[in-house]
Design a protein around this nucleic acid. Structure first.
Lengths: 125, 125
DNA sequence: GGTTGACCTGGAGTGTGCTCCAGGTGGGAT
DNA sequence: ATCCCACCTGGAGCACACTCCAGGTCAACC
């Protein structure tokens, strides 16, 4: 089990050091170890948790809900069902999000087709 | 060719009246007609343009780039190629966005599977 | 003629999620 | 001994995209 400096953690997790500090401040990260001089020391576990946070964040989960999830995760075994439901609800939202993106992308593609036609007419072979 | 009040336009376009005013103020909407007493009167054309804006917005295009697109759209035929390129670039970004979402969704689903296992063990039949 | 309600304007305020800053500490290299 | 650098803290500031507000206008209905 290795340990990582803030800079390493930032690099590996994809969050900036400032964001790591911010996440700890608001409670998304808890129990981050400190060395003798007060500096953060991240563990493999922390990195894994950051991976989860990144995944939730990139799929558009608001911080407030990630916070809820963190609280549950700290709660132990009896919160597993609630965590499951939270993630399932999120999964459905991601599904909808993708569907809407696809649909709107079709419109963009249609417009692209339209412009391609216009370009051809305007500048024929 | 019908005309629409701000309220109708808001309802049909899905943007709030405030957002319509904001869009006009910043230049995303131009040449919106006014009646004798200074109120906005939207045309079918305006509605169509709003549909395009909505589509770009929902696919995550920043306002600044939509503004660029609006300027080009006002520019007439000689900007068609640039508009085409802008939309093509956007289309690629949307594609990436969807791919990333799908990938992260897989992680969420994996976690869901994990919790489902945990729930089963914790509360067997 | 008064009230209502949809609309107008310029400008201030809001929510979200960071990002930056000033001032300070501790440990290692020169 | 001194310098540098990565890190610390609390708190201010910022970018984005709206959203709200005060104060006013106008047309229509009672």
């Amino acid at each position: 089990m290795s340990s990582y400096s803030p800079a390493e953690t930032a690099e590996k997790s994809g969050f900036s050091i400032d964001t790591l500090r911010y996440y700890e401040k608001i409670g998304l990260l808890s129990g981050i170890a400190r060395n003798a001089s007060g500096r953060r020391v991240f563990s493999d576990n922390d990195l894994q948790w950051l991976g989860m946070l990144r995944c939730l964040r990139e799929t558009g989960m608001p911080i407030a809900e990630m916070l809820r999830y963190s609280e549950l995760a700290r709660g132990g075994a009896e919160t597993v069902r609630e965590r499951l439901e939270l993630l399932q609800a999120h999964d459905r939202r991601v599904e909808e999000q993708i569907a809407r993106l696809r649909e709107q992308q079709e419109h963009v593609k249609f417009k692209i087709g339209f412009y391609q036609g216009a370009v051809c007419e305007g500048a024929p072979v």
